[in-house]
Design a protein around this nucleic acid. Sequence first.
DNA 1: TCTAACTTTCAAAAAGTTTTGAAAATTCGG
DNA 2: CCGAATTTTCAAAACTTTTTGAAAGTTAGA
Lengths: 168, 168
Amino acid sequence: MKLTEAKQQFISSWGAFGTHWGINRTMAQIHALLLISPDPLTQDDIMEELDISRGNTNMNIRELINWRLVERVLLPGERKEYFTAEKDIWKVVKQIVKERKKRELEPMLQLLDKLEEVDGEKKDKHVKTFVDTISSIKKLGRQADKTLDVMIKAEESWFLGMMMKFFK
Amino acid sequence: MKLTEAKQQFISSWGAFGTHWGINRTMAQIHALLLISPDPLTQDDIMEELDISRGNTNMNIRELINWRLVERVLLPGERKEYFTAEKDIWKVVKQIVKERKKRELEPMLQLLDKLEEVDGEKKDKHVKTFVDTISSIKKLGRQADKTLDVMIKAEESWFLGMMMKFFK
DNA sequence: TCTAACTTTCAAAAAGTTTTGAAAATTCGG
DNA sequence: CCGAATTTTCAAAACTTTTTGAAAGTTAGA
Protein backbone atom coordinates (compact mmCIF):
# COMPACT_ATOMS: atom_id res chain seq x y z
CA MET A 1 0.00 0.00 0.00
CA LYS A 2 1.20 3.51 -0.83
CA LEU A 3 1.87 5.94 1.99
CA THR A 4 -0.74 8.39 0.71
CA GLU A 5 -3.45 5.77 0.70
CA ALA A 6 -2.42 4.41 4.08
CA LYS A 7 -2.50 7.91 5.55
CA GLN A 8 -5.99 8.50 4.20
CA GLN A 9 -7.21 5.25 5.67
CA PHE A 10 -5.66 5.89 9.03
CA ILE A 11 -7.11 9.39 9.25
CA SER A 12 -10.52 8.27 8.20
CA SER A 13 -10.63 5.28 10.57
CA TRP A 14 -9.29 7.25 13.46
CA GLY A 15 -12.10 9.72 12.79
CA ALA A 16 -14.74 7.00 12.77
CA PHE A 17 -13.21 5.43 15.85
CA GLY A 18 -13.32 8.77 17.65
CA THR A 19 -17.05 9.16 17.07
CA HIS A 20 -17.61 6.00 19.14
CA TRP A 21 -15.80 7.65 21.99
CA GLY A 22 -17.58 10.96 22.16
CA ILE A 23 -14.96 12.79 20.11
CA ASN A 24 -16.10 14.45 16.94
CA ARG A 25 -14.91 13.18 13.62
CA THR A 26 -12.94 16.25 12.60
CA MET A 27 -11.18 16.55 15.92
CA ALA A 28 -10.08 12.93 15.72
CA GLN A 29 -8.96 13.37 12.11
CA ILE A 30 -6.86 16.41 12.88
CA HIS A 31 -5.31 14.49 15.73
CA ALA A 32 -4.57 11.54 13.44
CA LEU A 33 -3.00 13.81 10.83
CA LEU A 34 -0.74 15.45 13.39
CA LEU A 35 0.21 12.09 14.88
CA ILE A 36 1.64 10.89 11.59
CA SER A 37 3.21 14.19 10.52
CA PRO A 38 6.92 14.34 11.28
CA ASP A 39 6.91 18.14 11.41
CA PRO A 40 4.49 20.66 12.85
CA LEU A 41 1.70 21.83 10.52
CA THR A 42 -0.09 25.14 10.11
CA GLN A 43 -3.81 25.61 10.18
CA ASP A 44 -3.72 26.01 6.40
CA ASP A 45 -1.85 22.74 5.96
CA ILE A 46 -4.54 20.98 7.98
CA MET A 47 -7.38 22.68 6.13
CA GLU A 48 -5.94 21.65 2.82
CA GLU A 49 -5.03 18.11 3.78
CA LEU A 50 -8.42 17.30 5.30
CA ASP A 51 -10.45 19.63 3.08
CA ILE A 52 -12.30 21.40 5.86
CA SER A 53 -13.14 25.03 6.51
CA ARG A 54 -11.07 27.52 8.41
CA GLY A 55 -13.56 27.86 11.24
CA ASN A 56 -13.93 24.17 11.74
CA THR A 57 -10.18 23.65 11.73
CA ASN A 58 -9.59 26.43 14.20
CA MET A 59 -12.30 25.26 16.57
CA ASN A 60 -11.11 21.68 16.67
CA ILE A 61 -7.45 22.56 17.03
CA ARG A 62 -8.38 24.62 20.04
CA GLU A 63 -10.35 21.75 21.47
CA LEU A 64 -7.37 19.43 21.00
CA ILE A 65 -5.22 21.97 22.80
CA ASN A 66 -7.76 22.00 25.66
CA TRP A 67 -7.40 18.26 25.89
CA ARG A 68 -3.62 18.81 25.89
CA LEU A 69 -3.20 16.43 22.96
CA VAL A 70 -1.86 19.14 20.66
CA GLU A 71 0.52 22.00 21.24
CA ARG A 72 1.08 25.32 19.55
CA VAL A 73 4.63 25.64 18.26
CA LEU A 74 6.22 28.92 17.25
CA LEU A 75 8.93 28.51 14.67
CA PRO A 76 11.58 31.22 14.77
CA GLY A 77 11.18 33.76 11.98
CA GLU A 78 7.67 32.57 11.14
CA ARG A 79 4.53 34.56 11.63
CA LYS A 80 2.18 31.60 11.45
CA GLU A 81 1.40 29.26 14.29
CA TYR A 82 2.34 25.63 13.90
CA PHE A 83 0.77 22.67 15.64
CA THR A 84 2.15 19.36 16.74
CA ALA A 85 0.72 16.34 18.54
CA GLU A 86 2.21 14.41 21.42
CA LYS A 87 3.65 11.31 19.74
CA ASP A 88 4.07 9.11 22.79
CA ILE A 89 0.87 7.07 22.67
CA TRP A 90 1.07 6.08 26.30
CA LYS A 91 1.09 9.77 27.25
CA VAL A 92 -1.84 10.37 24.91
CA VAL A 93 -3.86 7.59 26.53
CA LYS A 94 -3.04 8.82 30.02
CA GLN A 95 -4.03 12.34 29.08
CA ILE A 96 -7.38 11.21 27.67
CA VAL A 97 -8.06 9.05 30.71
CA LYS A 98 -7.19 11.94 33.00
CA GLU A 99 -9.54 14.36 31.27
CA ARG A 100 -12.45 11.96 31.00
CA LYS A 101 -12.06 10.92 34.59
CA LYS A 102 -12.27 14.54 35.64
CA ARG A 103 -15.12 15.41 33.29
CA GLU A 104 -17.27 12.31 33.65
CA LEU A 105 -16.36 9.83 36.36
CA GLU A 106 -15.86 12.31 39.18
CA PRO A 107 -19.14 14.18 38.70
CA MET A 108 -20.96 10.84 38.47
CA LEU A 109 -19.46 9.69 41.76
CA GLN A 110 -20.51 12.92 43.44
CA LEU A 111 -24.05 12.45 42.25
CA LEU A 112 -24.14 8.86 43.49
CA ASP A 113 -23.08 10.00 46.95
CA LYS A 114 -26.08 12.31 47.05
CA LEU A 115 -28.51 9.74 45.67
CA GLU A 116 -27.50 7.08 48.13
CA GLU A 117 -28.99 9.16 50.92
CA VAL A 118 -32.54 8.76 49.70
CA ASP A 119 -35.30 8.91 52.35
CA GLY A 120 -37.63 6.04 53.09
CA GLU A 121 -37.96 2.64 54.59
CA LYS A 122 -35.14 0.29 53.77
CA LYS A 123 -37.78 -2.45 53.82
CA ASP A 124 -39.61 -1.04 50.82
CA LYS A 125 -38.28 -3.06 47.93
CA HIS A 126 -38.24 -0.02 45.64
CA VAL A 127 -36.03 1.85 48.07
CA LYS A 128 -33.90 -1.20 48.65
CA THR A 129 -33.28 -1.90 44.97
CA PHE A 130 -32.51 1.74 44.33
CA VAL A 131 -30.02 2.04 47.17
CA ASP A 132 -28.39 -1.30 46.36
CA THR A 133 -27.95 -0.37 42.71
CA ILE A 134 -26.50 3.03 43.53
CA SER A 135 -24.14 1.54 46.11
CA SER A 136 -22.79 -1.10 43.83
CA ILE A 137 -22.21 1.33 40.99
CA LYS A 138 -20.47 3.62 43.45
CA LYS A 139 -18.25 0.86 44.76
CA LEU A 140 -17.07 -0.10 41.30
CA GLY A 141 -16.73 3.54 40.28
CA ARG A 142 -14.54 4.39 43.26
CA GLN A 143 -12.32 1.44 42.54
CA ALA A 144 -12.00 2.47 38.89
CA ASP A 145 -11.19 6.00 40.00
CA LYS A 146 -8.33 4.81 42.20
CA THR A 147 -7.01 2.43 39.59
CA LEU A 148 -7.01 5.13 36.95
CA ASP A 149 -5.14 7.47 39.30
CA VAL A 150 -2.34 4.95 39.58
CA MET A 151 -2.34 4.40 35.85
CA ILE A 152 -2.13 8.13 35.16
CA LYS A 153 0.99 8.37 37.25
CA ALA A 154 2.59 5.19 35.95
CA GLU A 155 5.40 4.81 33.44
CA GLU A 156 4.50 2.79 30.40
CA SER A 157 7.24 0.25 31.04
CA TRP A 158 6.11 -0.30 34.61
CA PHE A 159 2.51 -0.58 33.57
CA LEU A 160 3.06 -2.94 30.67
CA GLY A 161 5.40 -5.01 32.81
CA MET A 162 2.79 -5.39 35.47
CA MET A 163 0.09 -6.22 32.96
CA MET A 164 2.33 -8.80 31.36
CA LYS A 165 3.05 -10.40 34.68
CA PHE A 166 -0.45 -10.62 36.01
CA PHE A 167 -2.47 -10.87 32.84
CA LYS A 168 -0.26 -13.13 30.75
CA MET B 1 -34.30 13.39 49.02
CA LYS B 2 -37.49 11.55 48.05
CA LEU B 3 -37.20 8.31 46.11
CA THR B 4 -39.16 9.68 43.15
CA GLU B 5 -36.83 12.64 42.78
CA ALA B 6 -33.74 10.50 43.26
CA LYS B 7 -34.94 8.08 40.59
CA GLN B 8 -35.52 10.93 38.16
CA GLN B 9 -32.05 12.28 38.77
CA PHE B 10 -30.42 8.92 38.39
CA ILE B 11 -32.22 8.17 35.14
CA SER B 12 -31.48 11.54 33.70
CA SER B 13 -27.79 11.50 34.67
CA TRP B 14 -27.29 7.96 33.48
CA GLY B 15 -28.77 9.11 30.17
CA ALA B 16 -26.42 12.07 29.92
CA PHE B 17 -23.50 9.88 30.96
CA GLY B 18 -24.40 7.38 28.24
CA THR B 19 -24.22 9.98 25.51
CA HIS B 20 -20.53 10.51 26.35
CA TRP B 21 -19.98 6.82 25.77
CA GLY B 22 -21.60 6.38 22.40
CA ILE B 23 -24.88 5.12 23.85
CA ASN B 24 -28.00 7.05 23.06
CA ARG B 25 -29.81 8.89 25.78
CA THR B 26 -33.00 6.85 25.67
CA MET B 27 -31.22 3.53 25.67
CA ALA B 28 -29.23 4.54 28.73
CA GLN B 29 -32.36 5.84 30.45
CA ILE B 30 -34.29 2.63 29.88
CA HIS B 31 -31.31 0.74 31.22
CA ALA B 32 -31.19 2.97 34.30
CA LEU B 33 -34.91 2.54 34.92
CA LEU B 34 -34.67 -1.24 34.73
CA LEU B 35 -31.59 -1.26 36.97
CA ILE B 36 -33.50 0.35 39.81
CA SER B 37 -36.78 -1.51 39.30
CA PRO B 38 -37.18 -4.45 41.65
CA ASP B 39 -39.58 -6.23 39.29
CA PRO B 40 -39.65 -6.66 35.52
CA LEU B 41 -41.46 -3.92 33.57
CA THR B 42 -43.53 -3.98 30.41
CA GLN B 43 -42.97 -1.81 27.38
CA ASP B 44 -45.95 0.27 28.47
CA ASP B 45 -44.53 0.79 31.94
CA ILE B 46 -41.32 2.08 30.41
CA MET B 47 -43.12 4.32 27.91
CA GLU B 48 -45.15 5.87 30.68
CA GLU B 49 -42.35 6.25 33.18
CA LEU B 50 -39.96 7.88 30.70
CA ASP B 51 -42.61 9.54 28.56
CA ILE B 52 -41.35 8.26 25.23
CA SER B 53 -43.10 6.80 22.20
CA ARG B 54 -43.88 3.16 21.58
CA GLY B 55 -41.49 2.89 18.61
CA ASN B 56 -38.62 4.49 20.42
CA THR B 57 -39.11 2.28 23.45
CA ASN B 58 -39.31 -0.87 21.40
CA MET B 59 -36.23 -0.04 19.37
CA ASN B 60 -34.06 0.74 22.36
CA ILE B 61 -35.20 -2.27 24.36
CA ARG B 62 -34.19 -4.44 21.45
CA GLU B 63 -30.83 -2.74 21.30
CA LEU B 64 -30.32 -3.35 25.02
CA ILE B 65 -31.17 -7.00 24.45
CA ASN B 66 -28.56 -7.11 21.65
CA TRP B 67 -26.02 -5.82 24.12
CA ARG B 68 -27.24 -8.53 26.51
CA LEU B 69 -27.87 -5.95 29.21
CA VAL B 70 -31.60 -6.61 29.30
CA GLU B 71 -33.62 -9.79 29.08
CA ARG B 72 -37.14 -10.61 28.03
CA VAL B 73 -39.08 -12.28 30.82
CA LEU B 74 -42.34 -14.17 30.32
CA LEU B 75 -44.50 -14.19 33.39
CA PRO B 76 -46.78 -17.23 33.63
CA GLY B 77 -50.35 -16.40 32.74
CA GLU B 78 -49.42 -13.05 31.21
CA ARG B 79 -49.68 -12.21 27.57
CA LYS B 80 -47.33 -9.22 27.72
CA GLU B 81 -43.58 -9.38 27.60
CA TYR B 82 -41.70 -8.11 30.62
CA PHE B 83 -38.15 -6.82 30.70
CA THR B 84 -35.48 -6.92 33.34
CA ALA B 85 -31.87 -5.74 33.56
CA GLU B 86 -28.86 -7.60 34.85
CA LYS B 87 -28.36 -6.11 38.31
CA ASP B 88 -24.80 -7.28 38.95
CA ILE B 89 -22.84 -4.20 37.91
CA TRP B 90 -19.62 -6.11 37.47
CA LYS B 91 -21.36 -8.35 34.92
CA VAL B 92 -22.77 -5.27 33.22
CA VAL B 93 -19.33 -3.70 32.91
CA LYS B 94 -17.82 -6.91 31.60
CA GLN B 95 -20.57 -7.26 29.05
CA ILE B 96 -20.09 -3.71 27.79
CA VAL B 97 -16.33 -4.16 27.60
CA LYS B 98 -16.77 -7.41 25.73
CA GLU B 99 -19.08 -5.90 23.13
CA ARG B 100 -17.05 -2.77 22.57
CA LYS B 101 -13.85 -4.75 22.30
CA LYS B 102 -15.42 -6.85 19.59
CA ARG B 103 -17.05 -3.95 17.78
CA GLU B 104 -14.29 -1.37 18.00
CA LEU B 105 -10.90 -2.51 19.28
CA GLU B 106 -10.60 -5.66 17.21
CA PRO B 107 -11.41 -4.05 13.85
CA MET B 108 -9.00 -1.23 14.64
CA LEU B 109 -6.20 -3.70 15.36
CA GLN B 110 -6.86 -5.47 12.09
CA LEU B 111 -6.62 -2.21 10.21
CA LEU B 112 -3.37 -1.30 11.93
CA ASP B 113 -1.84 -4.61 10.86
CA LYS B 114 -2.60 -3.75 7.26
CA LEU B 115 -1.39 -0.16 7.53
CA GLU B 116 1.91 -1.12 9.08
CA GLU B 117 2.94 -2.77 5.81
CA VAL B 118 3.11 0.48 3.90
CA ASP B 119 5.56 0.61 0.96
CA GLY B 120 8.48 2.97 0.80
CA GLU B 121 11.87 3.80 2.16
CA LYS B 122 12.15 3.52 5.92
CA LYS B 123 14.58 6.45 5.68
CA ASP B 124 11.91 8.84 4.46
CA LYS B 125 10.82 10.62 7.60
CA HIS B 126 7.18 10.63 6.51
CA VAL B 127 7.24 6.87 6.16
CA LYS B 128 9.15 6.47 9.37
CA THR B 129 6.82 8.62 11.44
CA PHE B 130 3.80 6.87 9.98
CA VAL B 131 5.09 3.37 10.67
CA ASP B 132 6.32 4.28 14.14
CA THR B 133 2.98 5.79 15.08
CA ILE B 134 1.01 2.83 13.77
CA SER B 135 3.33 0.37 15.54
CA SER B 136 3.11 2.06 18.87
CA ILE B 137 -0.67 2.31 18.73
CA LYS B 138 -0.78 -1.35 17.79
CA LYS B 139 1.47 -2.37 20.64
CA LEU B 140 -0.67 -0.63 23.21
CA GLY B 141 -3.86 -1.84 21.56
CA ARG B 142 -2.77 -5.46 21.65
CA GLN B 143 -1.86 -5.18 25.29
CA ALA B 144 -5.22 -3.62 26.07
CA ASP B 145 -6.92 -6.40 24.15
CA LYS B 146 -5.20 -9.09 26.22
CA THR B 147 -5.83 -7.30 29.49
CA LEU B 148 -9.50 -6.89 28.71
CA ASP B 149 -9.76 -10.59 27.85
CA VAL B 150 -8.56 -11.47 31.32
CA MET B 151 -10.87 -8.95 32.89
CA ILE B 152 -13.87 -10.33 31.00
CA LYS B 153 -13.19 -13.75 32.42
CA ALA B 154 -12.44 -12.59 35.94
CA GLU B 155 -14.62 -12.71 39.01
CA GLU B 156 -15.25 -9.36 40.59
CA SER B 157 -13.76 -10.41 43.90
CA TRP B 158 -10.58 -11.62 42.25
CA PHE B 159 -10.32 -8.50 40.15
CA LEU B 160 -10.99 -6.05 42.96
CA GLY B 161 -8.61 -7.96 45.19
CA MET B 162 -5.86 -7.74 42.65
CA MET B 163 -6.49 -4.07 42.04
CA MET B 164 -6.48 -3.40 45.74
CA LYS B 165 -3.20 -5.19 46.17
CA PHE B 166 -1.30 -3.62 43.32
CA PHE B 167 -2.96 -0.24 43.04
CA LYS B 168 -3.57 0.56 46.67
C1' DT C 1 -59.93 -19.85 12.17
C1' DC C 2 -60.76 -15.38 14.02
C1' DT C 3 -59.82 -11.54 16.66
C1' DA C 4 -58.08 -8.68 20.10
C1' DA C 5 -53.80 -7.93 22.35
C1' DC C 6 -49.48 -7.01 21.64
C1' DT C 7 -45.00 -6.07 19.01
C1' DT C 8 -42.41 -4.33 15.20
C1' DT C 9 -41.43 -1.38 11.35
C1' DC C 10 -40.34 2.71 9.03
C1' DA C 11 -41.10 7.23 6.67
C1' DA C 12 -41.43 11.66 8.09
C1' DA C 13 -40.57 15.20 11.64
C1' DA C 14 -37.96 16.96 15.31
C1' DA C 15 -33.90 17.57 17.73
C1' DG C 16 -29.12 17.77 18.07
C1' DT C 17 -24.50 18.36 16.20
C1' DT C 18 -21.12 19.86 13.05
C1' DT C 19 -19.55 22.74 9.39
C1' DT C 20 -19.17 26.79 6.73
C1' DG C 21 -17.54 31.27 5.54
C1' DA C 22 -17.59 35.96 6.01
C1' DA C 23 -16.84 39.49 9.30
C1' DA C 24 -14.55 40.98 13.45
C1' DA C 25 -10.65 40.88 16.29
C1' DT C 26 -5.90 40.39 17.08
C1' DT C 27 -1.05 40.40 16.17
C1' DC C 28 3.36 41.70 14.46
C1' DG C 29 6.87 43.83 11.46
C1' DG C 30 8.04 47.97 9.71
C1' DC D 1 0.73 53.49 14.80
C1' DC D 2 -0.44 51.35 10.28
C1' DG D 3 -1.83 47.73 7.55
C1' DA D 4 -1.31 43.18 6.03
C1' DA D 5 -1.29 38.60 7.81
C1' DT D 6 -3.33 35.69 10.76
C1' DT D 7 -6.64 33.95 14.13
C1' DT D 8 -11.15 33.80 16.19
C1' DT D 9 -16.10 34.14 16.36
C1' DC D 10 -20.70 32.95 15.39
C1' DA D 11 -25.17 32.87 12.84
C1' DA D 12 -26.94 30.27 9.40
C1' DA D 13 -26.81 26.00 6.66
C1' DA D 14 -25.85 21.24 6.17
C1' DC D 15 -25.77 17.04 8.01
C1' DT D 16 -26.68 13.29 11.43
C1' DT D 17 -29.22 11.08 14.83
C1' DT D 18 -33.20 10.31 17.36
C1' DT D 19 -38.06 10.24 17.99
C1' DT D 20 -42.75 9.83 16.71
C1' DG D 21 -46.96 7.49 15.60
C1' DA D 22 -49.70 5.18 12.54
C1' DA D 23 -49.84 1.09 9.92
C1' DA D 24 -48.40 -3.57 9.28
C1' DG D 25 -47.22 -7.80 11.30
C1' DT D 26 -47.48 -11.39 14.75
C1' DT D 27 -49.29 -14.21 18.39
C1' DA D 28 -52.19 -16.79 21.53
C1' DG D 29 -56.43 -18.19 23.23
C1' DA D 30 -61.28 -18.96 22.38
